[in-house]
Write a protein that binds this DNA or RNA. Structure first.
Length: 745
DNA sequence: GTTGCGCAGATTTTT
DNA sequence: TCTGCGCAAC
């Protein structure tokens, strides 16, 4: 196999096939290329059977990309390779070995929302007010435990109570797990800990999988949590042919349990591990790479890589100071117009923002210029009510212990089974230790035995019909009938279709359309699988929520998180302001959180290939009032030689009533100078000449928003000067002097 | 069941 | 300022 297309470190990474190895792969360093080459090398040169290779990634996107590249390059049976996500891999193993843990093959996978529904019910049962202890908090605690690798049987209250902010959480954890088990269901975290439990409790099972997968590769290693790390360890501790690839500088999901220590401590766990750094960047211009490197170098929690590139010097980064958020959006739209006029394709342009809320101003501005765009990962398709409802119908067919699913649809569409009847049924189910569906099945079978429930005739017949329908579809399922057929049957005979059709509003029509889309998803699934069934379909859509993306001549809009793994020639990053990026939360939490924000900022910068434009607004409409946050601290971490400072002060005036109507004045903005560059570009004056501050510590000032205050501290000088001010009521704020509306007293 | 009011809260969201 | 929710009343 010819490895000439790889650079020296990449080749090393391919050739060191045996023993533990960690690849630290910087942004744009050809990580996937290397990983694919390594697998290909294992198969073609080392004659490893494709059945013995396991490659796990975190996201479906990455798994898919790797699979596609392998299929394109290797002359091997790619279908035999296991290239999947952590969760899909665990689900697969649990479906086969679940019996050891008392799980049957058809278990349901609950997503975060469903977990919270279970918790809500538990809280209600205990009469705990949701304001006192929110379902979210409990869910986060439970998920946190699972991310750390705890499961019932391993965790003891003494070990984990330190993570709980409320004594009741432990009991809720136990009850939650019991409820999931009763429902023959597993949540996301439970997929991983289920494997830990399985392998540790049944070493013969562990041995089987250890023997099977002689070579294990982990991509996106920086995003793994402790539990996933332990699972990998259990799989590879015997043969130790483990290759992990990651970039500690791109770890941006710690709030989801990703543990950067998995990277930082890898060599502690595998003392014989080889470490290879991929530091050559093939993506971006020199200016961009060097500037990004300078920024990320400020982080302490890193192994340290020195990125470099042979690419051109490239344009300077543009840092654009705008008067407000609308001027910023307008600037971006105008710039895109200029670039597009030069012949750049719109699909080579992306706009990133720190949070979804900021897409709106950009969307408005792009619409005004009639630019087509797509918002990546907006509202989730599978989160829509009607879609969840139909999924619940399918779920109850597949898993009759899934009481959550039945609760959802027992009265949707309305069949007269109201809250009171449902309560009666639930109580009876608990008393008889049956799932809700098992109970109504019995009721349908022998109604006279359930007279004591005194169900109305309406409820009785609703139950009969529903049970009948579900059983019929179950039969179809057992006979391996087409999932599409089952879906249609459920949709029509449940009355759901009629119910939506009766809704003549625009919304009703949209819901119907969504259900049609769901049907085409079923159809598409059916065509892609050799043995399609509802269990597999349901698993696929809970573990892989990616919907087909719009492609074509479109500008891409997305959050910075969403941009990970992508690249664009022209990148605009908006909202580079304190309290936004870094977020106010991270500023509250402190240094480690700010480091993660910095990594996020680094991710954003390194997406850009040719041109990077970072903008901030002096004033931004936020939470109903105009906020003056000042430029992001990360901007000051970019050395001057890499950027050009642009001040965009023209554009629409913000009318006194900012809001929906005020776009009128936007329309009257200087359209006349359409083609001309009608903003003033000026290179930022960086006079570092020391001058005494106008605001020495201890002096009194008046702030336009916060009122009177006392200067506590000053840092920087001239244009960069920042002051920390103590206001009344203990409010303490830091401002850039040049932006803050301050007055000396 | 649906509508409407009041109130809190308002990052990121691979699975 | 806007939204989403829980709860109360129709």
């Amino acid at each position: 196999m010819n490895l000439d297309f790889l650079n020296e470190s990449q080749r090393q990474a391919v050739l060191l096939t045996d023993g533990p190895i960690m690849l630290l792969a910087g942004a744009g360093s050809g990580k996937t290329r290397t990983l694919v080459a390594r697998i290909q090398y294992l198969l073609e040169e080392k004659r490893v059977s494709p059945f013995q290779v396991l490659a796990v990634t975190f996201s479906n996107k990455a798994a898919r990309e790797m699979r596609e590249r392998l299929a394109a390059n290797a002359q091997v049976n790619v279908g035999a390779l296991q290239v999947t996500t952590f969760h899909a891999f665990c689900a697969k193993v649990l479906r086969m070995e679940g019996a050891y843990l008392g799980l049957s093959k058809n278990f349901t996978i609950y997503d975060d929302g469903e977990s919270q529904s279970i918790i809500k019910a538990l809280l209600a049962k205990h009469g705990i007010n949701q304001k006192e202890l929110s379902p979210y908090t409990v869910a986060a605690y439970i998920d946190g435990l699972k991310n750390l690798g705890y499961y019932i049987g391993l965790a003891r209250n003494e070990d984990v109570e330190k993570y709980a902010e409320d004594r009741r959480m432990w009991d809720l954890f136990l009850e939650y797990e019991a409820e999931l088990h009763r429902s023959n269901a597993v949540d996301f975290g439970g997929l991983i800990t289920g494997i830990l439990n399985l392998f540790r409790s049944f070493p013969e099972v562990q041995r089987k999988y250890q023997d099977k997968f002689k070579y294990v590769l982990v991509d996106e290693y920086q995003d793994t949590n402790r539990a996933q790390f332990e699972m990998i360890l259990l799989l590879s501790e015997a043969h130790r042919n483990l290759c992990v690839v990651g970039d500690e500088d791109q770890s941006i999901y710690s709030w989801r349990g990703a543990d950067i220590r998995n990277i930082l401590d890898f060599e502690k766990v595998f003392s014989e591990a080889k470490l290879i750094k991929l530091e050559q960047n093939y993506r971006s211009s020199k200016k961009i790479i060097e500037a990004a490197s300078e920024v990320i170098a400020r982080n302490v929690a890193r192994k340290g890589k020195q990125m470099w590139t042979n690419n051109d010097e490239g344009d300077e980064i543009k840092i654009v100071e705008c008067r407000d958020d609308r001027a910023e959006a307008e600037y971006v739209a105008q710039q895109i117009k200029l670039i597009a006029n030069e012949g750049v394709s719109l699909k080579d342009i992306a706009v990133f923002y720190r949070n979804n809320a900021h897409s709106r101003t950009i969307e408005d501005a792009l619409r005004k210029e009639k630019f087509p765009y797509r918002v990546v990962a907006g509202i989730k398709f599978y989160d829509r009510k009607e879609v969840k409802d139909m999924i619940s119908y399918m779920r109850i067919v597949v898993n009759k212990k899934d009481s959550l699913a039945l609760t959802r649809i027992i009265n949707t569409p309305a069949r007269g089974v109201g809250a009171t009847s449902l309560r009666k049924l639930e109580d009876e189910a608990v008393r008889l230790q049956l799932s809700l569906f098992e109970l109504i099945e019995k009721i349908a079978e022998a109604p006279h035995e359930y007279k004591h429930l005194s169900l109305s005739g309406k409820v009785q017949s609703a139950i009969n019909q529903l049970v009948h329908l579900v059983q019929e579809v179950q039969v179809l399922e057992n006979q391996n009938h087409s999932p599409t057929f089952s879906y249609e049957k459920l949709l029509n005979e449940s009355g759901y279709y009629e119910f939506l059709r009766a809704d003549k509003t625009y919304e009703g029509a949209a819901r119907l359309e969504n259900l049609e889309e769901l049907m085409s998803a079923v159809k598409q699934f059916e065509e892609s699988e050799t043995e399609p069934n509802l269990v597999k379909f349901l698993e696929t859509i809970t573990l892989d929520t990616t919907v087909e993306e719009q492609t074509g001549e479109l500008i891409s809009l997305m959050t910075v998180h969403g941009s990970k793994g992508l690249e664009y020639p022209y990148v605009f990053l908006i909202g580079a302001e304190e309290n936004i990026f870094p977020s106010y939360r991270s500023l509250e939490i402190g240094p480690s959180a700010i480091e993660e924000e910095r990594r996020l900022f680094y991710v954003a910068m390194t997406r850009a290939m040719k041109q990077l434009t970072i903008s901030f607004a002096q004033g931004r409409m936020l939470w109903g009032s105009l906020k003056f946050n000042g430029p992001s601290q990360f901007l000051q971490e970019i050395p001057e030689r890499y950027y050009k400072w642009i001040s965009y002060q023209t554009g629409p005036k913000r009318s006194s009533e900012y809001g929906s109507k005020s776009y009128d004045d936007f329309d009257q903005s200087p359209e006349s100078s359409d083609d001309a560059v009608f903003y003033k570009e000026k290179v930022y004056q960086t006079k570092r000449t020391s001058s005494t501050s106008n605001y020495p510590s201890g002096s009194k000032i008046l702030h336009a928003l916060y009122g009177e205050g006392t200067i506590l501290d000053t840092e920087g000088m001239g244009q960069e000067e920042k002051v920390t001010i103590q206001f009344r009521d203990g409010i303490r704020k830091k401002f850039m002097v040049k932006f803050a509306p301050l007055q000396k007293l």
